[in-house]
């Protein structure tokens, strides 16, 4: 599903080079639910951004669903994000001026679906997160947990193969966090591959695979799970 080989990403700020990722290797298989943990500044977010095609990298190869993404231009990358990847963010990132319906509609517009298809998908995905009745509400009228559910609905509406979650429960209280986690687990069980970045070990423990990132490298894996450090070519 997702293969990263010797990925290196450096930032240059004020003439100082910072390695965000170095020789980063990872393989995620179809149907995995992977938790990525690590301390602040370890490269978790950079990994997620690269995995989600939000950022480019300097060296190495990244293959997503059998496609080498480093060769893609902006338009093709946007298409991949739109069709194959769903994003869930810590701060939800809903557009405050749009109601729930229109928020979920955003990716579908770029997908080019017709109005009927969009309507079907929006209603279906909002139904799935239990917010079908509040379609006309604005994000500000919802609780944090509900907002995150809308974000999940938005991610699901395009029926992506691959879901990227960045601290999805970071802004939520424990109860809400649990329900969001339960929803993600259910989605995973229905066949969607999920990679989740978190700093919460308890949350990580609820997934099949845990990856620990430190200094831009996958330096440790949870013993009970099989994670390749070096991939056999």
């Amino acid at each position: 599903m997702l293969t990263m080989q010797s990925l290196t990403k450096t930032y240059v700020t004020d003439n100082v080079q910072t390695h965000a990722l170095r020789e980063f290797n990872l393989q995620v298989n179809e149907g995995d639910f992977v938790a990525v943990t690590g301390p602040s500044g370890s490269g978790k977010t950079t990994f997620l951004n690269i995995a989600g095609l939000l950022e480019t990298f300097n060296q190495g190869t990244y293959t997503l669903d059998g496609q080498n993404v480093s060769a893609l231009n902006d338009k093709q990358r946007s298409k991949v994000r739109n069709e194959k990847i769903g994003f869930i963010f810590q701060n939800f990132n809903l557009i405050p001026d749009l109601n729930l319906y229109d928020n979920v509609d955003v990716p579908l517009r770029y997908r080019g679906f017709n109005a009927q298809e969009r309507k079907r998908r929006i209603e279906q995905s909002l139904e799935r997160v239990g917010l079908a009745k509040r379609m006309q509400h604005l994000p500000s009228q919802l609780s944090g947990g509900q907002q995150q559910r809308v974000a999940i609905a938005r991610a699901l509406a395009g029926e992506p193969r691959f879901l990227l979650a960045d601290e999805p429960t970071g802004n939520l209280d424990t109860k809400m966090a649990h329900s969001v986690m339960a929803l993600l687990t259910e989605i995973n069980q229905n066949g969607t591959t999920i990679v989740m970045v978190t700093h919460d070990p308890e949350l990580a423990a609820q997934t099949q695979r845990n990856i620990f990132v430190r200094d831009g490298k996958v330096s440790e894996t949870t013993p009970e799970l099989v994670v390749t450090d070096k991939i056999a070519v």
Partner: peptide, 15 residues
């Protein structure tokens, strides 16, 4: 932020 989000969920620069 809205633009970034749109970009993340599939809008190209052109869009």
């Amino acid at each position: 932020p809205e633009i970034a989000l749109r970009r993340a969920i599939g809008a190209s620069k052109q869009d």
